[in-house]
Design a protein around this nucleic acid. Structure first.
Lengths: 254, 254
DNA sequence: TTTTCAATGCGTAAATTTTACACAAAGAAA
DNA sequence: TTTCTTTGTGTAAAATTTACGCATTGAAAA
C-alpha cells in the first residue's frame, strides 16, 4: 500500500449493504419477517443498499417501510457482518442458476453475489400492523416463528441469532413493549413478551411489581373479557414516561 | 429500483472503511492513539480499508498491528458510522488543499474524501508495549489523554465518544484489565483503572471484595516497593480463569 | 342452574446483595 | 525519630431480590 495508493485501493472492498431482522410478537411467540427469492425455495432477511444521499439509518428505515408498510418502527443497528465467506455459507451457486432462469443469464453479473459487508439492524414492530411485501428479487414475504426459521441464504441465520442477542441485551437495560404490543394489553401479555424474549419464566407478582416501579404504565378501567377466567385489567404505556425511561434506561433485574 | 437494477446499483454507496479507537492506560489516565496528517495539524483515528480477501476483523487486526507493533490485542467492533455528512463535520476542504501540497494536485481524486461507511472498532492495549507508528498519510502517531483530545477530522470525536460508551458497557459486564494493565499490578492500580473507565470512585474494601469474588486474580508474594507508604501486594490475572470469566461474563455491580 | 377449572389480583417475610464505615501498620520522606 | 500518605482488613445496616398462598372472577362443562 505504501507505494501505490491507487493500486492498493483497487484491492479493497467496495460494497456495503444492510439487512434487517424484523421482530414481531404474536400468539406468545417471537416472529421474524423473511423473503423467498423468485423461482426458488430459498429465504433471506429483508435488506438492501444504501443510496448515495442517504445515511445507513435512513436506508434501514426506507427498506423497512417498503417491506412492512410501517413508518416509525423501532430500529437499532447491532453488528456489521464482514466475514470473507459470508456469501458462501449456503449453496448460492445453485441459487444463482435458478435466479438466472427467472431473470436471464448474466443479469446479476458484477452486481449481487459479490462479497459485501452488511450492516445488521433489528426492528421491533407491532405484528398486526405489518403488511408483508416482497421486493423485486422475491415473490413472497411472510412471518416465521423464530423456532421454525429454515436455513437461510448467506449468513442470515447468524444475523438472526445476533439480533436476538442484541434484543435480549436491550430488554435487560431498556423498557420494551411499546414497539411490539398493541396499544392496550394485559399484564400477563406483557409478561409473556418478556418471557419469550428472555426465554425464562418470572413470578407474576414480582414481574408486575418491577414493571410498575418503572412508572411507565397506566392501568385502564377496562378489562379484557372473553377468556374462561377472571378478566385481567388492560394497561397502556404512558408515552412520555416510556420515552423518558428509554433514554435513561432501566434495569430489568429479574 | 424496481425497473433498472444496474441504474439503481450505480446510485448506491460503494465504500467501506474502518477506524480504531485504541485505548491505553497510563498514569491513571485513559489515552487514545491519534495520527497527524502529513503537512497539517489535523488529527484522526487510525483506520484503513478492508482488503478483498480479508474479513473486517482481520483488517482491524492488520491495521492495529501496523500502528502499534502489537499482535494480539483486544479488539471489538462497536458501531458502524453511516451518516451522510460524516466527512463534512470539519474543514476537510482546507485539509485536502494542504494535503495536495504534500502529495500533489489531484492525488486523492476519487479515492479518499468521498463518503464512506466506516466500521468502528475499539482496542485495548498495554500502554508500555505500544510502538506508535504513523501510516502513509500521516507523519506522527502518539498517545493523547482522553481529556485533551483535540477536534479531530471527520466524525472521529463522535467515534471516540461511542467507543468509550462501548468500553464502559463492556466493563460493566465483563472482566477488564488483562488487556490494559501490565502483567503484575496492585489492587489500587486495578481500582484506578475501573474508576477511570467508569468515571466514578469506589470503596477500596468493596472493590477488592467484588474483584476477588470473580476468582480471576492471584495475589503474589511480591509487593510493589518504592512509594512513601505501605507496600501493596502485587496481583496477576489467572489467564484461564480470566478467559472463562470473559466468556461467561461477570457483572460489575458497584 | 350449578359446578369446575384456569387465570387473575394482591402483600409480606426471608434471603441475598450492596453499601457504608474505621483503625492499625508499613515505608519513604522530612 | 517523626510525619505523612497509602495500604490491609471485617462487620453491620440498608436495599434489593426472591419466594410464596389464597380469595376472586368468568367462561365452559356438567
Amino acid at each position: 500500500m505504501e507505494h501505490n495508493l491507487k493500486e492498493f485501493f483497487d484491492k479493497t472492498l467496495k460494497e456495503v449493504s444492510l439487512d434487517c431482522t424484523v421482530f414481531g410478537f404474536h400468539e406468545g411467540e417471537l416472529k421474524v419477517l423473511l423473503l423467498r427469492w423468485k423461482g426458488t425455495d430459498e429465504w433471506s432477511l429483508p435488506g438492501g443498499h444504501i443510496l448515495l444521499d442517504e445515511s445507513a439509518d435512513d436506508a434501514a428505515n426506507r427498506i423497512l417501510t417498503q417491506r412492512t408498510g410501517l413508518n416509525d418502527v423501532y430500529l437499532q443497528q447491532f453488528y456489521t457482518f464482514g466475514n470473507v465467506n459470508r456469501y458462501v455459507y449456503h449453496p448460492e451457486k445453485e441459487l444463482l442458476q435458478k435466479l438466472e432462469v427467472t431473470f436471464g443469464k448474466g443479469f446479476f453479473e458484477g452486481i449481487i453475489f459479490r462479497r459485501v459487508v452488511s450492516i445488521g439492524y433489528f426492528a421491533l414492530v407491532e405484528f398486526a400492523q405489518v403488511q408483508p411485501t416482497p421486493d423485486w428479487f422475491t415473490d413472497e414475504c411472510r412471518w416465521w416463528s423464530l423456532a421454525d426459521v429454515p436455513n437461510l441464504l448467506f449468513d442470515h441465520n447468524e444475523m438472526i441469532e445476533r439480533a436476538l442477542k442484541a434484543l435480549r441485551q436491550r430488554t435487560r437495560n431498556h423498557p420494551i413493549g411499546y414497539n411490539l404490543l398493541p396499544e392496550k394489553f394485559t399484564m400477563p401479555e406483557l409478561q409473556r413478551l418478556y418471557e419469550t424474549i428472555l426465554d425464562r419464566q418470572f413470578d407474576r407478582r414480582n414481574f408486575q411489581k418491577l414493571l410498575m416501579s418503572y412508572d411507565i404504565l397506566e392501568r385502564l378501567d377496562e378489562k379484557r373479557v372473553g377468556a374462561a377466567n377472571k378478566s385481567p385489567y388492560l394497561y397502556r404505556f404512558v408515552k412520555e414516561k416510556y420515552e423518558a425511561a428509554v433514554l435513561e434506561g432501566v434495569s430489568f433485574s429479574m
